Every structure is written in structure tokens, then in C-alpha cells.
Simulated assay, not measured.
Amino acid sequence: PLTSSPEYRPKPASTPAEIDWRAELLGVLALMPSDGFERLCQHLLREAGFTKVEVTGRSGDGGIDGAGVLRVNLLSFRVFFQCKRWKGSVGPGVVRDFRGAMVGRADKGLILTTGVFTAEARREATRDGAPLIDLVDGEALCDLLKLHVIGVQVRNVEEVLVDPAAVVAFSLPAYG
């Protein structure tokens, strides 16, 4: 599944190589046209288990870029999603506006961005008394694209180290 909490948070990048591939991927995403980014998110959601994922692409939709159905065990949820191809921060107004557009029309909401969510936006997404909105920031988006092998390749390199002392130890009489 894509996420089980209001905000998908991968483990933080710890090595320069991890940071570099994310920065490179975010750079590529920044160059995409908006509708291309929406289609990429559509593909990601399909790979993550959503069905009937459609990009609406309509103006005046209140920020709803698409919809899909997520089935979890015996339950199905209609999910509206919004795609924000931004370099900067996504604030609470975006979350409020999106929630207003989806209330009564969908069971869940999901905002995916190449940027970051402000602390206020994260609080707004989980505000008491309001439908929860799941948030996927740029780093988490990169990790999801990697997980589902969309636009990235992962190469596992095997490193073999010879331990001469361990090899020589077998020639000692105690092993005979």
C-alpha cells in the first residue's frame, strides 16, 4: 500500500548518494509539464494498488487532479488526489482548499508534491473534526517511485571480500 498514515515519511536520506539521486529525480520532475506530472502520479497510484485511477485535468475542479479507488481488504475507498509540482513549500491553504473540494465527494484525499509541506500544512491535514488528508512530499515521492521502479533503476552491487586469516585457519590441524 501507498501509505497507512496521514503522512508517508520514509527514513531520512543518510548518504550523499541517497541525497544525490533524489535531487536528480526531483530536478527531472521539475522539468515535466504539469499534465505529465499528473499522469506520472496516476501511474504511481496504479502501481501502489489503486484501481480506476483517472486524471481529471479540468479547470475549476477545486484542485482535484484525479480520482481512484483503493481497496483495503473488504473495504474500498474513493480517493481524490492533487499533484503539486512545486519547488517550495506547500502551505495549509492548499490542504484546506483541497479538503473543501473533496468533502462529500470522496472518502479520502491525497496530496503529492515535489516540494515540502509546512508544519502548518501537516497540522491542517490531520486537524480534529476534519477528514484526514494524506501527504506525500518530494522525498517520499522519490522513495515511492524507487519502490515501484518508476523512472529509476536500482543496481545491487555484490562486494566480495577475502579474509586470508579465515582461509588459512582451515589448514591448521584443529580443523582436520
Rank of each mutant, 00 (worst) to 15 (best):
E38I: 13
P12R: 05
P92S: 11
R78K: 05
V53G: 05
E159H: 10
K11Q: 12
A30Y: 07
A165Q: 05
G176V: 11
R96I: 14
D35V: 12
V116K: 06
V79M: 04
E54A: 13
A166H: 03
V168D: 09
L2Y: 01
V55K: 05
A125W: 02
C83D: 10
A17L: 13
L161T: 13
P6N: 05
L31Q: 15
R9N: 13
G57N: 11
L145K: 06
L147K: 03
E54C: 07
G36K: 13
L31R: 05
W86Y: 15
V167P: 00
D107L: 13
T3L: 12
E24C: 12
G91I: 13
E24H: 02
A121R: 02
L45Y: 05
W21V: 15
R22M: 13
K84Y: 13
F170R: 03
P10S: 06
L31F: 03
F37E: 15
H43P: 00
L172Y: 08
G60S: 07
N156A: 14
L44H: 05
A169I: 01
R22G: 00
F50A: 09
S5F: 06
V72Y: 01
F50S: 09
C142V: 15
A13H: 05
P173L: 10
V69D: 09
K11L: 14
R9L: 06
F80H: 11
D163F: 15
V116G: 08
E120C: 11
V136T: 10
G60N: 03
V149Q: 05
S89I: 15
P12L: 15
R39A: 12
A125I: 04
P1G: 11
V157P: 02
D97F: 08
C41Y: 08
A119R: 10
G176I: 14
T56W: 13
P33R: 13
F37H: 09
A165F: 10
P10H: 04
A101P: 01
A165I: 04
T126A: 09
K108D: 04
R58K: 07
R22W: 02
V116Q: 03
K108Y: 07
V168M: 09
H148S: 13
L132F: 03
I111L: 06
Y8L: 14
G100T: 05
H43Y: 09
R127D: 01
E24Y: 08
T113H: 01
N73Q: 15
L144E: 04
A17G: 14
V103C: 08
S76C: 10
T15F: 04
K108G: 08
E54M: 14
G68I: 11
